[in-house]
Design a protein around this nucleic acid. Structure first.
Length: 485
RNA sequence: GGCACCGUCGCCAAGUGGCUAAGGCCGAGGUCUGCAAAACCUCUAUCGGCGGUUCGAAUCCGCCCGGUGCCUCCA
């Protein structure tokens, strides 16, 4: 199964060919575990989780590696601020990371190495660079010599002069060149440290991904992902280090997701305009957040706002109401052992076309919406048809439903049970509006009585009262149900 | 200052040379309904501006206007 993927390195969409037939090695930069994850991290997670699911779906044997940066200045600072051990901080936020990602239906990568578990590999790589004169040590620190790598800037499309011209880097006279970056940092007394040929210290940030990528996926692997903000300097430096150490470019396809914006501005820690995943999941169902995050192409920025989340919620409710209704209509129906297909292979083909075109999830959502409309018609028609003649329609509904779920599951949505999903939305709204459910039930009973007496004016008055509270009434064959507007 | 990117219906968002510019939200009209709701049907854009290339451009090129990101840790 062939697909196209946008490669930051070449700036083009390319036909993907794996290094080894049928297999894909994919490394995605994880998080530095010193704080709770925000919605920006959620986007990166959801995007690559979706890609992971799809690649497996089309038959690839994928090895997905995602690291934890569990040693770093920010972690040490946070530990000092709070007066706790650094590894207490990392343990806490790794736990929190899993809580958040699990709630978002994220599949676990095959390997999730921590930087501190791969220090020997990093030291090896730094030593190799030093032996070749591509790195130099100064008083316990080791720097990479950018001038040793002619292609520096190839990923971010920048020339070394351009970088220097706009450099806001503090002048560090220990570096031979302002662009040189730390491979190894000497530790101060009391800081976490590892023994090395240069004395006790800790690895620089960039070397960890080079070392871990190579350790788990080999000197050259297929896909390396991360947020756009990692293109420079992180991934640029990674290329420099790996090329320097192994002589070959480490990654064949570089894939970067766009930012989550708030009011057109990047959501980020430093701007302080971020929402943590757990804050948002208090307000919205995880699948609502996922649907929203996949509603625009992964490379484009996406604007985070309540109105956009609310729209996603309305859409998800529509899908789940359909699922809920369909389950009822299909209750007791025994499908044909061999699916009749009913032309749904065309839909599957459209789905694959969309995903094969650089993972265009926005188009997948359009396809799902079209299927929803079509299957609602089938469902309505089935309901209107005499029970004995419903068979073919129910089969069509059954097959369509199965395909809808198959596609949605790649996006990581429509996984919850319809009743659980709808109930959670309902309860959330009841809480928000601070409604009295007993009173609602009573009013509905009174309305039902009025209706059976054909006292329409009374019935309508009860309904008006409910409407004012924000409660919506639906009279169904199984009786009156209610939900929140 | 340098380097990238973006500007499509009221809103969100696909489309990157050629059938009638996807899909969703909101809105309007209709079918259904005691009336509603839900569902379904119908309706709503020539693509920031100007100029160019081309038989043909939202899609390519140039300029202008507006916005963002990166150049420092950042998904």
């Amino acid at each position: 199964m062939n697909f196209q993927i946008y490669n930051t390195l070449t700036g083009n969409k390319e036909d993907f060919t794996p290094l080894q037939a049928g297999k894909i090695g994919m490394y995605v930069c994880g998080v530095t575990v010193y704080d709770y994850c925000h919605v920006g991290h959620a986007r990166a997670g959801v995007v690559f989780d979706t890609i992971f699911r799809y690649l497996k779906h089309i038959g690839y044997d994928v090895t997905y590696v995602r690291n934890f940066t569990d040693i770093d200045d920010k972690i040490i600072n946070r530990a000092n601020e709070q007066g706790v051990a650094w590894d207490e901080i990392t343990r806490k936020f790794i736990d929190a990371f899993y809580e958040d990602m699990d709630r978002l239906n994220m599949e676990r990568p095959n390997l999730e190495p921590k930087a501190t578990e791969c220090i020997p590999e990093m030291i090896d790589m730094i030593s190799t660079l030093e032996k070749q004169g591509k790195a130099y040590s100064v008083d316990g620190d080791v720097y990479y010599s950018v001038s040793s790598f002619a292609d520096y800037g190839c990923l971010s499309k920048r020339k070394r002069e351009d970088l220097l011209a706009g450099a806001r880097v503090e002048v560090d006279d220990r570096k031979r060149d302002p662009l040189d970056f730390a491979l190894w940092k000497k530790s101060k007394p009391g800081e976490p440290s590892w023994e090395s040929p240069w004395g006790p210290g800790r690895p620089g940030w960039h070397i960890e991904c080079s070392a871990m990528g190579q350790k788990f996926l080999g000197k050259v692997f297929d896909i390396h992902g991360g947020g756009k903000d990692l293109v420079f300097p992180h991934h640029e430096n990674e290329i420099a280090q790996s090329c320097g150490a192994t002589g070959s470019a480490p990654v064949r396809y570089w894939v970067h997701n766009g930012f989550v914006n708030i009011n057109k501005e990047k959501m980020s820690k430093s701007l302080g305009n971020f929402f943590t995943i757990r804050d948002i999941l208090d307000k919205y169902h995880p699948e609502v957040l996922r649907w929203f995050l996949l509603s625009s192409h992964y490379r484009n920025p996406i604007d985070f706002s309540d109105s956009n989340l609310e729209e996603a919620e309305r859409v998800m409710v529509r899908f789940y109401e359909f699922l809920d209704d369909s389950e009822k209509v299909l209750a007791g129906f025994v499908p044909e052992p061999v699916s009749s297909e009913n032309g749904i292979s065309k839909v599957r083909e459209k789905f694959r076309e969309a995903m094969n075109d650089d993972f265009n999830t926005a188009i997948v959502q359009a396809i799902l919406n079209e299927e929803l409309r079509r299957l609602n018609q089938v469902r309505d028609q089935a309901t209107k048809t005499k029970k004995k003649q419903r068979g073919p329609l129910l089969q069509e509904l059954f097959d369509g439903l199965a395909l809808m779920k198959e596609m949605a599951h790649i996006l990581g949505v429509l996984i919850d049970s319809p009743s659980a999903f709808l109930e959670s939305i309902k309860q959330k709204k009841i809480r928000e509006l601070d409604l009295d459910t007993d009173k609602i039930e009573t009013l509905i009973q009174e309305r039902t009585q009025a209706r059976s007496a054909k006292a329409w004016a009374d019935a309508d008055r009860f309904r008006d009262e409910l409407t004012e509270m924000g409660v919506l009434i639906e009279d169904t064959p199984e009786g009156t149900i209610w939900k929140i507007r």
